[in-house]
Simulated assay, not measured.
Amino acid sequence: MEITDDFIAAYQANYGVGESTQQTEQQSASTTQQSQQQQKKAKKDLKPGEKRKANEPEWFDVDEGKNTNVYVSGLPTDITDEEFQEMMQKCGIIMEDTETGRPKFKLYRDQEGQLKGDARCCYLKKESVDLALQILDNYELRGHTIHVEPAKFQLKGTYNPALKKKKKKQKKQKNMQERLLDWRPERKEPLRPKNERVMIIRNMFHPKDFEEDPLVLNEISDDLKSECEKFGIVKKVLIFDRHPDGVASVAFKEAEMADAALAALNNRWFGGRQLNVALWDGVTDYQIQETDREREERLKKWEEFLDQGADIKKGETTETKTSKTTTAGSSSTSGESDRGKTEG
């Protein structure tokens, strides 16, 4: 298509670009150019080490693509923070303050501390602003028609470079935004120390009980685990077989499970002994190390126990063979007697 004077005139008529508009644009461009030249000149006139003077206080507009703040007016003067937050959350996630961790909104008050009926809310995403303008503008709230619009700001006082956001704060704000947008639920920190998940039981046994039969240790461990599983998930059972107080420990998955087991088992009788149950203090070590002599004696007794078991098994085998031989002999004699009777 050929661009002629008639085409340009038709284009300007349709899109409102007339001579006045062109003149305005030319004046604006000229003003901008002059401003840039003045800034360059002022920069050249600065002496070494001299800083540029601060700008005067003025109104300014945040970039529309980055402004996530909305200004709300027409609110009831008795509105609460919770009610305002609940209403604004319908349009998106509200930004959190990096210092306090609280939602970033403000209900404006007068000098006497009374609510004025307007507020500001900062969203996490720009899309929430557009949604708030569509949904909440002219919204009826308890008989009040509220109005929502993009928030505007004014620079208060003189410009202070020291108040400029530092990289650390910006990084902290970025991490907060990522956490708010994360789909995974927040992990609750344990309110109680881990040692309170472990229950300590005293007077369950006497160390001499295992000298007579070492397998008793496994029986006690199995019985204790079976009983404690009634109160929750048991992760570990330890029997301190050398402790003179007959100590055992049970580790649960949660501290509340240990509380329930403690309430049920404390002062209860087990094998003729009254149990003393408490939560572990996280410090006391109930493991008692044995000396070399004690270890030799324990191994010697264990060998005697195994030999005794082998002798018993051997004796049972001999008795079985003898019984089978006797049975076979009796059967043979009975057969001969029966044949004699038949021949007779």
Rank of each mutant, 00 (worst) to 15 (best):
D281F: 01
W302L: 15
T326D: 13
L133F: 03
D223L: 06
V277W: 02
I94Y: 02
D241M: 03
V129R: 00
D223I: 09
Y71S: 00
Q23S: 10
D209G: 04
T100C: 00
K324T: 07
T322D: 14
N218S: 14
M88Q: 00
K166I: 02
E256N: 05
T145K: 15
Q173W: 04
D110L: 00
L131P: 01
T77V: 07
L224A: 09
Q22S: 06
F105I: 05
E96F: 09
M257A: 08
K253R: 14
K41P: 03
M1Y: 06
K165E: 02
T320S: 14
V198R: 11
Q177T: 10
D81T: 11
P76A: 02
S330R: 13
S35T: 10
T77S: 06
E149C: 08
Q12H: 11
I233P: 02
L238N: 14
K156A: 12
E64P: 09
N69L: 08
L215N: 15
E294I: 09
Q173R: 13
K208F: 11
R109M: 10
H144R: 14
C228F: 04
T77P: 05
N138E: 13
N218V: 01
Q170N: 08
E112P: 03
Q289R: 11
G65W: 07
N14Q: 12
A328F: 09
C121F: 00
N195D: 01
L191E: 12
F231N: 07
K236S: 06
N267I: 06
G74R: 03
V237G: 03
R339E: 13
R197F: 01
Q12G: 15
H206A: 13
P76N: 09
K313L: 12
L163R: 01
W183L: 14
K225R: 15
K225L: 05
K300G: 02
I220L: 07
A248M: 07
G49Y: 03
Q39I: 07
T284M: 03
I93T: 04
L75G: 01
Q274W: 07
R192V: 06
A260L: 09
T80D: 05
A162S: 14
K230Q: 15
G113F: 03
V70T: 01
G335M: 08
E50G: 00
P214E: 04
T68L: 01
N266D: 09
E256W: 04
F84A: 02
F7C: 04
K172L: 10
D130L: 08
K235R: 15
E19K: 15
